[in-house]
Amino acid sequence: MAETIDFSRLEIHRKRSLPMRDFFFRFKEELSLTLKTPESSLSTEILEPNLHRPGLALAGFTEVFSNQRIQIMGTTEWFYLESVGPEKRREIFDRLKAFPSPLWVMTHNAGPHDELLKMCKEQNIPVCSTARETMDFCTELQDLLEDWFAPYCSVHASLVDVYGVGMLYVGESGVGKSECVLDLVERGHRLVADDIVNMTRKGRSIIGKGNKILGHHMEIRGVGIVDVERLFGIRAIRNAKKIEVIVELQHWREGENYDRTGLDAINTEAIGISIPKVVIPISPGKNITVISEVIAMNMALKMKGVDAAKLFNEKLIETMKGKTPSKDATRLSTEVHE
């Protein structure tokens, strides 16, 4: 029997570099970049998702200088260079020649000083200007770079947005993941991906996406390949969703203990992030779709701070304190048997 996914042993990938040419042409509109050096200077590579303000290096302190990062020249740096005059600027950039960076960016559309341009030309490093304001530019660039360098992996699973809760279905082949997903879509929930889900860590969350080639196609045994977007319309799909619950579908096993109270949440670690997990035993005639909706709603309640199982148990313990016997409990239990 095929084992279900072991999330602790996923093969995690990470992009090692972002070639400058790719970066520039991909993001130049988004970041309002203009190149101030010849196009041939776009031969560098970005190796880490961090930015650096080179103020101290310009002032002469180079013992610690993160020159391998993108250098951001804000108003402070620009005015400093302006204030020291051409002679000193030449001296500064002569010294910095030994510290190549992947890119220098001038914010506020400031024109780079000739001495900086000269150094970069010699190093064959690009210099750009952006119309954006420094902090705004840094926040956006940082975000883009973090996305690019984020750890990611691909799993055999299906991802559906159920009432706004991202539910990742895992389980051995043939357990009925696709059928469950199709049923959910039919009831108005939104498919993100079936069969292959690419998971990327973003901050403290895991974002799931489909495969570009597969799109929102699904394979249904006995039917073949169907296009969910065309069949059910745009409302039935979405491109990416934060994964909030992992639902493991399992064939019913005699003697296996399933969670009865919901008090002890199980979590699974995926790419270093802990995600709640629910194991659902499947048996013929079981309506997994309705159970899925309940899981989603219960999770939405928990995210709002309402834990039904915990509240119920607290109330029960409170009832048992200092009572012998409770008329109330007697009445309730009689009702159960009627």
Binding site: T319, M320, K323, T324, P325, A329, T330, L332, S333, V336
Partner: peptide, 24 residues
């Protein structure tokens, strides 16, 4: 069975509804 109320011991809701306190 507690206080003349009988519960199926294989049903969690049944057992909880006995509200069997310490010493019962």
């Amino acid at each position: 069975t507690k206080d003349d109320v009988q519960a199926n011991a294989k049903s969690i809701m049944n057992i909880m509804l006995l509200a069997a306190e310490f010493g019962a």
